[in-house]
Design a protein around this nucleic acid. Structure first.
Lengths: 190, 190
DNA sequence: GTCTATAATTCGATAGAC
DNA sequence: GTCTATCGAATTATAGAC
């Protein structure tokens, strides 16, 4: 009992276990089909702890479904390589252990959960739109960003959520080439 | 007592009222967040009737979420107009009163419902894939169809489900031009 | 900090009267 | 064919012992 001094306090470790389990289950089954009991079981703690730590299931979801795309500053890259750069970065984020699950959580729930949908629109507004705006004429910025968004959303939906076989089978390089050319055209307004 | 609609028995009219209400609510809230009670209230009948008529909530969903894209035979169209033709038909189907709601029902539920996802993959296999296969070299057919699918899915997700403002604001002609060029490249494998 | 026990709802589905 | 009444199971969330 005297040894309360530890590298990571128990409360923090429990909190992280809950977040990891929630991220996992939300990304597989979406918000509605994931129960607090399941999260507790996977985290190895009592379900009541989840409410104690996060207040509600909704609050836990909000905590876990706030990813950052971390799109690169495109003004620094070659103007003719914007498309491929953007797609490469996008793929890396989705396949990365850190933000990938958070994105899947969000996309899987956004189609039937108001909060998740609003959160996804926010990512579009604050991350995709600014990155695209500078790549072409200002007056067509919303249009160009919208087209880029639709293609990137479709790619993520097909590859990571619905797992459309031919899209899953493609290599990252293949996707960067094929889809990159599309994004390049959308982003620059050719 | 005035006798109306002798031509359609009450049972059929009730059945149709249930299907219409279900289509409406499933397309707004998805499968999980729509309750049998809500459907009954909107249809103006008792919730128990829904189980009596369709057996279960799942069976009702299956009945309502089986749309037909009715994609055109692309072998009859100019080879350089495949993209625009496909996008125009796709938009018409989504915005049509008949099949549009069925598609929205499916897409809105496919991200968190196993049955809906499988049904969506079926549409891809039986309707999108065959239409694309003949537009380019046979060995790249799955790849080309996958890319087409990802762009069309993303377009539908952005415009009809998430309602991304700039994508909603685009006119059908604008979409046919911009996205049509992408589909053309994907479908033919340029 | 953690768990047991349970409150308070809400769900899909059923039985049976009329 | 339709509705009333309700069942049994599942859910989120809370109260309180240890």
């Amino acid at each position: 009992m005297t040894e309360q001094r530890r590298s990571t306090p128990k409360s923090i470790r429990t909190r992280e276990a809950i977040e990891a389990a929630a991220k996992e289950l939300f990304s597989i089954n979406g918000f509605e089909r994931t129960t607090v009991r399941e999260i507790g079981a996977r985290a190895g703690i009592d379900p009541s702890m989840i409410i104690r730590y996060f207040g509600s299931k909704d609050a836990l979801f909000a905590r876990v479904a706030t990813p950052d795309l971390e799109l690169p500053d495109l003004s620094a890259t070659d103007s003719h390589a914007i498309g491929e750069t953007l797609v490469r970065h996008f793929l890396a984020q989705w396949e990365g252990e850190k933000s990938g699950k958070g994105m899947t959580v969000l996309l899987r729930s956004a189609t039937s959960n108001e909060d998740a949908a609003e959160r996804l629109l926010d990512i579009f507004r604050t991350q995709v739109f600014p990155a695209i705006a500078r790549a072409g004429p200002p007056d067509t910025a919303p249009l160009r960003a919208g087209l880029v968004g639709s293609q990137l959303l479709g790619l993520a939906l097909a590859r990571y959520v619905l797992r459309l076989p031919p899209v899953v089978a493609m290599s990252p390089d293949q996707i960067v080439r094929s889809v990159g050319e599309t994004i390049q055209r959308y982003a620059t307004g050719a």
